[in-house]
Design a binder for these strands. Sequence first.
DNA 1: GACTAATCATGCTTTTTTGGAATGGATATA
DNA 2: TATATCCATTCCAAAAAAGCATGATTAGTC
Lengths: 301, 301
Amino acid sequence: MISLKQIRYFLSVAELGSFTQAAAALFVAQPALSRQIALLEKELGFRLFEREARGVRLTPAGSGYRDRVVAVDGMLSAAADEGAQLASGESGVLRLVHSSSIPAVSLLSAIRQFLVESPNARIDLDRISSETQVTEVAGGKADIGIARLPVLRRDSAVRFVELADEPLLVALSSKHPLTRRASLSLGELRDLPFVSAVHRERGGLARLVTDLCLRRGFVPKLARVVSRKTSMLDLVAAGLGIAVVPQRMSEIAGDGLVYRPLVDADAQARSAMVLPLRASPLARRFADIMGQKKDPATRAG
Amino acid sequence: MISLKQIRYFLSVAELGSFTQAAAALFVAQPALSRQIALLEKELGFRLFEREARGVRLTPAGSGYRDRVVAVDGMLSAAADEGAQLASGESGVLRLVHSSSIPAVSLLSAIRQFLVESPNARIDLDRISSETQVTEVAGGKADIGIARLPVLRRDSAVRFVELADEPLLVALSSKHPLTRRASLSLGELRDLPFVSAVHRERGGLARLVTDLCLRRGFVPKLARVVSRKTSMLDLVAAGLGIAVVPQRMSEIAGDGLVYRPLVDADAQARSAMVLPLRASPLARRFADIMGQKKDPATRAG
DNA sequence: GACTAATCATGCTTTTTTGGAATGGATATA
DNA sequence: TATATCCATTCCAAAAAAGCATGATTAGTC
């Protein structure tokens, strides 16, 4: 079997035109070199060198072989460098998944800082449910998730790092009667139609809101048109119902909408990063940035 | 030192996602495989695989490494194939050198046949003196020479394969008085100016003609304008002198020229192939073709 | 919840490969 | 002719690699 060592030996002999000199340059004895070249020639089935009185010269076949083989060494080094960069987090792709209720724009600040710190890195964003995030991160399909708590599905391969709480707001159509109120309580929403917040089996924002309502003795009433996507705020603006959303979401959609704070102390939305136990360097870096941003928010809120 | 074996092992594990399966596919024991991968990882300085319960998975770094390294195997095979083709004479370049008095057109038939037999081969033609041919063929700068005899320089690294003799003709301007004669003898050229044929120290056609004249007791008289290139026939046509040339040369220049045979029995031009002792396959093939063509010519002439 | 099966890692021994020193053979140089 | 140079060969020792047996961990199962 041809070895890289043989090829390196061959290139050295070809360059220097002499077994003796090449052996000196390679810090091996000349007979060892002779034998490796002989083995290589035997393996290839043709002679690489013409042996002459003062040194050797490449045969045409040897010359052609050299032209093709000379790049291999460089390719291997390049591959090793590439791998080292990826391993160190100097370059690579961060596959970031996030919940609908944590829109990408609310992550923009962290993303920008991340891209500045890692100029050779890329980010692939994907918006998927909090539950799926656990599966994808555990399965290695995603590097980090930003999920809305509670998350029901657990996996020993992932851990959660909680982020700052943020207050929940009531989103109302600007024409809604309750907009006259400066603040609201959850109990007052008992008979109002929700355009979101539903399945008890699922986690995320819907689960959170449902639980808060249950704690106050009622099941949130569903509007006739219901959505679980960001566009639910459009339904609210259209007057089809109300929604309880985290503060962040109020930052991205305003036309025709009015937000009112909830006086309830427990009306807080919780979120967390979903990380694999052995996070990639890029994921670690992003998590660090998110962690830095968490504290000021926590203190502030 | 990273070895090709390690890389082949790595690619197999990466493809199958399992040490056990890869070991089976490679016909080695699983521990041997484990160790080689471990060594490779240590050498590279980063982990290639995430070890998981049911098999392994490439790390991002391992994936990048694989993408770059996967071509290496193919490159080495391609290089070996290229070399084998060159060694077998299936492809390559035949560096053919020839004397001025054996113009390329007179070799066209052999060249055509050669190119048909070796469709992937190329020919580099060069016109150099017979003496230089010996040096270049001996020094490996040319693969085969077609020389006009006699060749004075000898070299133990080359051998000569004589080709068919061909009659010498006298080239005259079409206005020359001697054109009235159907044939001539060398002795009749005693006082006529030669536009070529000169240096006694050199070989080739010039040497041959000079020797023939000397054998008849005179030194050929030089014309006032002398050339050693093919264009000497232009000088003859212009009436500046006469020339004694092999029959082949009469086939390539006719305007304003008349050729007359020499009655002298020894007025024969000899030529030979100059071959290295260990000729390349392409040179051997070309020599074979030339050899085939020699015999009919010999019989005919 | 213990058991089984599967997978990769480790320790030890044997085989294979590789390298080094001495030597031989061929060839150019003085 | 003698000498120096260069590559090939032989023999022996060292290093590397493979195989076998076994350990450790984890997923799936009853």
